[in-house]
């Protein structure tokens, strides 16, 4: 049975890049604003549906659609921030209010998607979604490979922005010490808005890739929420490298569970990991404690 191990690792590595991309925005938004964005998978689904619409109506390849969804979701994210979170910064019930607001947003998005696209299970099927490479006995889906590579590429791009640009400095500074950032002249409100936009843009990119790797229906985002939370909680909430490592570790683990125990228990890997990490080591591998004062 363990002869499957190379296959498990290859599949896990390919999928891991996409999972990491899906989680990257979630961890960024938490880091900068301490908002647990429960609507993040719903944002991913918005982009997946836009991609699906572009693909079915205009035959635009999902990989091309990415050039649309990313900027659209970037702007969408900034608007959402302005509307719902900008005024809450000084609220003593900040954590509770923001978490529940994202929860309500997720419900609204679910309802709107259901209203427009109905409950049917969808996915896009560009040519590469049915093709695969074989390396000896090892099977590697082209869809998963493309999604994984682009996912990691975009995370690297995000990392470069954070590390070397002016806004990147501002975002990191706000993440590490909000009041200090204010004191050196960072406009933390504007920085938060842009960071939120960037996080949602990452969700936008992830949605386009997601559309040809997985299937989706309006209510399906809740399951992904727990999966993504598991990745970033394991890696340490707020840490981008943590999200990547968490994604690879848990993806490989879940592929292993799928293969060895049974397909239906795969998601349980994430749910249990989420629960256990929260209880045993809430700061995860690389993060600082996420408990609020």
């Amino acid at each position: 049975m363990i002869a499957d191990l190379p296959q498990i690792i290859v599949t896990g590595l390919a999928l891991g890049g996409l999972y990491a991309l899906m989680a990257s925005g979630l961890t960024l938004i938490f880091g900068v604003m301490r908002i647990v964005n429960l609507a993040h998978p719903a944002f991913i689904f918005i982009s997946a549906y836009i991609t699906w619409k572009l693909f079915t109506d205009l035959s635009i390849d999902p990989l091309v659609a990415l050039a649309v969804t990313m900027p659209v979701m970037f702007v969408f994210g900034m608007i959402v921030y302005k509307l719902f979170f900008a005024r809450e910064a000084d609220n003593p019930r900040y954590i509770e209010i923001t978490v529940l607001t994202t929860f309500a947003l997720a419900l609204i998005i679910e309802g709107v998607l259901g209203f427009i696209f109905k409950g049917t299970v969808r996915s896009t099927n560009p040519p590469y979604s049915q093709q695969a490479f074989f390396i000896g006995d090892i099977f590697l889906s082209r869809a998963q490979l493309y999604a994984g590579l682009i996912g990691i590429g975009l995370i690297a791009f995000l990392w470069v922005i954070l590390q070397y640009t002016r806004i990147g400095y501002a975002i990191r500074a706000t993440t590490q010490n909000r009041s200090a950032a204010q004191v050196v002249g960072v406009n933390v409100e504007r920085t938060s808005m842009i960071a939120f936009g960037l996080g949602v843009a990452m969700a936008g990119a992830a949605g386009s890739l997601f559309s040809f790797v997985f299937t989706f229906f309006p209510g399906g985002h809740w399951e992904w929420l727990a999966i993504l939370l598991a990745l970033i909680v394991l890696g340490g909430m707020g840490s981008l490298p943590g999200a990547v490592i968490g994604a690879y570790l848990l993806t490989i683990a879940s592929v292993f569970v799928n293969d060895q125990i049974g397909f239906k228990w795969g998601p349980m890997t994430f749910f249990l990991a989420l629960f256990i990490v929260l209880m045993v080591r809430p700061q995860g591998l690389f993060g600082s404690k996420i408990e609020a004062t």
């Binding site: 002016r166 400095y169 500074a173 200090a180």
Partner: peptide
């Protein structure tokens, strides 16, 4: 410029990056 009581540094940035943040404005 205001230097608050609690040393307002960016703990996970390097010394050089912290100085750059000093010149952010």
């Amino acid at each position: 410029a205001f230097l608050p009581q609690e040393r307002s540094l960016f703990p996970d940035m390097t010394v050089l990056e912290n100085l750059r943040m000093g010149g952010y404005a």
